[in-house]
């Protein structure tokens, strides 16, 4: 059953890749035949596909790590307030508008917003980056940043700016280029290295916090590094693609439903499933005929939520 599922996933991935990357302007072709088709393939579609994949990886990984760390199957990047912090900082920067001359300044501000949220989380949880206090602090921070984003949108100087910012916040990988990929990739690699350096601590997350505290870890430092990795993943995702919800919740559950429960393999499978999911959804975004292209974040939630319900329904007797 599991082998068949993997074959289906691989085949679907291949089809997505082919369907996505087809370069023909007047019909599908795998390889470009002229400069225009080459530009479409290599400058528009390929970076979009790669960015969708990297974003899915980041969110899938962040979601799995958060669910393990917080011992809560409902945890996802959105509840930590980190995505909200990065989003708010970006929207505020857009409002003031003085940052556009330097290409890297806007993403940098977004990343700093995410980092600021992490520091606030650390302070609000009194340095104890675990348990209910952290979850409540994260939910409060997410609500606050959400409200402040609404204030900034409300104060948008004109309807066009409002529409642009609102659409950006819904999450999308359309009209992105290689610069976004180069911004995303190092954050992903750095976060992965951080998580790998904490592999023992992550494995120990199968136990409750009191037990983990007796297993010889420098708890505060270990937890801070894990959250630093999550901040990198989530902030990089927000500054390159806006706020895409649900992947961080869905991917770890899908990994568990595929039978992977050991923390490290589960995190990696969740990353792969996140990438696959987001690439598939972005392909659908392009396929669905609508007057205005739908935002990726909207489609992910529209399709992901029923999919999770179906998976859960079919697994009604299984415990995980």
């Amino acid at each position: 059953m599991r082998v068949k599922l993997w074959l289906v996933l691989c085949l679907a991935s291949l089809l997505i890749g082919l369907g996505y990357l087809g370069s023909g302007v007047d019909g599908w072709r795998l390889l470009p035949e002229n400069a225009l088709e080459s530009a479409i393939l290599f400058e528009i579609r390929l970076p979009r596909l790669v960015l969708a994949g990297l974003n899915g990886m980041a969110l899938g990984m962040a979601g799995a790590v958060l669910q393990l760390q917080l011992k809560n199957p409902l945890a996802e990047p959105g509840i930590t307030g980190i995505a909200g912090g990065a989003g708010l900082a970006t929207v505020v920067a857009l409002y003031w508008g003085g940052l556009t001359p330097i290409a890297w300044s806007l993403p940098l501000v977004g990343m700093l917003g995410g980092a600021l949220s992490l520091i606030l989380l650390w302070l609000l949880s009194r340095g104890q980056m675990f348990g209910l206090r952290l979850i409540l602090a994260g939910v409060a921070l997410a609500s606050l940043t959400g409200a402040l984003m609404a204030v900034v949108l409300n104060l948008a100087p004109n309807p066009f700016a409002f529409q642009e910012w609102a659409l950006w916040l819904m999450g999308s990988v359309a009209n992105r280029g290689w610069s976004h990929v180069w911004l995303m990739a190092p954050s992903l690699v750095l976060a992965l290295l951080l998580l790998l350096s904490q592999r023992r601590f992550l494995s120990a997350q199968i136990f409750d916090d009191a037990t983990i505290a007796t297993l010889g870890f420098q708890l505060g430092w270990n937890r801070f590094l894990i959250f630093a990795a999550v901040t990198l993943l989530v902030s990089a995702s927000v500054v390159t693609a806006g706020i895409i919800g649900f992947v961080g919740l869905l991917a770890p559950h899908a990994a568990r439903l595929l039978g992977q429960h050991q923390p490290l393999p589960m995190i990696l499978l969740s990353a792969l499933l996140g990438a696959w999911l987001l690439m598939l959804m972005d392909w659908l975004v392009r396929l669905i005929p609508t007057p205005v292209e739908l935002q990726l974040g909207v489609v992910v939630s529209l399709i992901g939520a029923p999919w999770l319900l179906i998976l859960l329904y079919r697994q009604h007797s299984a415990k995980y």
């Binding site: 199968i206 136990f207 409750d208 009191a210 007796t214 010889g216 923390p263 415990k319």
Partner: peptide, 27 residues
Amino acid sequence: LAYIAQQTLVNEAVTVAYALQVSQVNL
């Protein structure tokens, strides 16, 4: 020192062998 809590919760559906292996961490 080994500490055995009143109740240890295992939060993931890992095997007994894996739980034993992880509980040897940092020894």
